[in-house]
Design a protein around this nucleic acid. Sequence first.
RNA 1: GGGGGAGUAGCUCAGCUGGUUAGAGCGCCGGCCUGUCACGCCGGAGGCCGCGGGUUCAAGUCCCGUCUCUCCCGCCA
Length: 604
Amino acid sequence: MHRYRTHTCNDLRTADAGAEVRLSGWCHRIRDHGGVLFIDLRDHYGITQCVVDPDSPAFACAEKLRSEWVVKIDGTVRKRPAGTENPEMPTGLVEVYVRDIEVLGPAAELPLPVFGEQQYPEDMRLKYRFLDLRREKLHANILLRGRIVDSLRARMKAQGFCEFQTPILTASSPEGARDFLVPSRLHPGKFYALPQAPQQFKQLIMAAGFDRYFQIAPCFRDEDARADRSPGEFYQLDIEMSFVTQEDVFAAVEPVLRGVFEEFGGGRPVTPSFPRIPYAEALLKYGSDKPDLRNPLVIVDVTEEFSRDDVTFNAFKNIIKTGGVVRAIPASGAGAQPRSFFDKLNNWAKGEGAPGLGYVVFETTDGKLAGKSPIAKFLPAAAQQAIAAKANVGAGDAVFFVCDQEGKAARLAGAARLKIGNELGLSRSDVFQFCWIVDFPMYEWNEEEGKIDFSHNPFSMPNYGHDAFLALDPADKATILSLKAFQYDVVCNGVELSSGAIRNHRPDIMKKAFALAGYSEDDLEKRFGGLYRAFHYGAPPHGGIAPGIDRIVMLLAGEENLREVVLFPMNQRAEDPLMGAPSPVTPKQLRELHIRLNLPEPKA
RNA sequence: GGGGGAGUAGCUCAGCUGGUUAGAGCGCCGGCCUGUCACGCCGGAGGCCGCGGGUUCAAGUCCCGUCUCUCCCGCCA
């Protein structure tokens, strides 16, 4: 007989009745009835009920067992007595009558129960992550993650992509996020950086002629955390392809994402063909570049309607005069809501930093559509009807208004759209709604520095004729700021899964692109020397994308927080309370690295 | 760097307009119980009410500061 087990805790069935077996696992739950004692023995695979009574030589030992002790149990499989079967459990028709127990690993009193679904504080969960990971939901999430990664790999390979490993110790890149630095022992005063993404490597792989690259790539960024953004490190399905247009990238990636979401989505429908939404349209209609399309509400611009001469609502008119816009969020069916609904939304908007949310409730009076609201008296019937027509609402619906400068108005309208949709229960929760966001602006105006900047990443190819781009006058701000890039995002249920782009592979266009943002060729060589050099020796047109693994798993597991799908996550302050990272190092280690600490004064 | 929320038993939480000895459930310890599967019943231990200061006859409760966790903004090419 094997030293530890003949079966797992999910193996035994009625057909095994009579067998002498050996199981090992954790005491999940113990029910002591005095004369008879039940141990739910749990391992990775499942749970099997073990029974001890005073006739068993193991009875005395069994009475001493406590939750989460690891034990080896020898016994006989038997059918449970009639009426005591548990159909909820795969092993629920049988039990093991215990003859011998060996304690393999006793457990101290638990700071965090494994049994049950209760919520526990994050710091406790992280400090005792090994206990938390024993719990059913988290254990299942981590396994799901593994299966998703397997599936992504298989789907990529089936399309002819080859997996590569790129360096972890590399050079600091001055663009983008803050780097994690690693001091060099051999080169005093110099540092490696952990890659923020294998961006330049994958482009170099294309320049090296490998054609189709992918990697489940670790990425490191020293930026603050969010619920959907790990501090420090995360994984992405990094993809790059040669001789492709934007459409080719979509055609390669869309079936991978759709396939994985169909495979692991538990039957929830997945967008059959991802719609393409231009960036500007997304900001107008959804108030966000990551629209949640499960929410059916569509924002419209009603600046024109509020500018009419017969409208006397000066609170908005004055903002419009300074370049502001008015956005309307239709609220289907909100007419039936009590006054408190509108007050609640108004208070919410104030919490978001807005003066409030104007609204009109539409009803039919004398066969005509009429608005009721605190601001209705400023809006003559004709203006109300024009707004209702534009927002596509009728009697029984309401419309909310926000008025501000365009960017702020769009953002608030977008947040209000989500809030209203949730309050009214309009969003479907059991679907995966994907879309591509396309036509991102190539440049944006940097208000602080008063200059033109790259709006996303400097590697994207402008969506503009090459010759025309090379001929652009740097003083022609209007044209430059109106340029689009071959840059795209893929979004699912309001979660940005990925950014990608067709890359700028031509050194002349790259030089021009940097020049328009105020960078010299010298800057370009300093920052991206390796890549820039590669582009001088025959680089193929190429492009790619990099969907975040953690977010994909989050969506599929139905989790709101990334820590629920990461084995050993850090807390919001980028600490690992289990391993004690980050930690001080010895003076000897610092000496070898030629580092002397210059710490801030401790607060008094 | 900024804003919101939270911090009371090992864990989850209650504790009203300040007022005797700070409670419950789970867990733990002891006792009882031969068919439970969130077993049940009886008893017990366990509290710097995050920390420091203030107001008050009296503070878990009010005020100020501070620390910690968390969510958000900034940031994340």
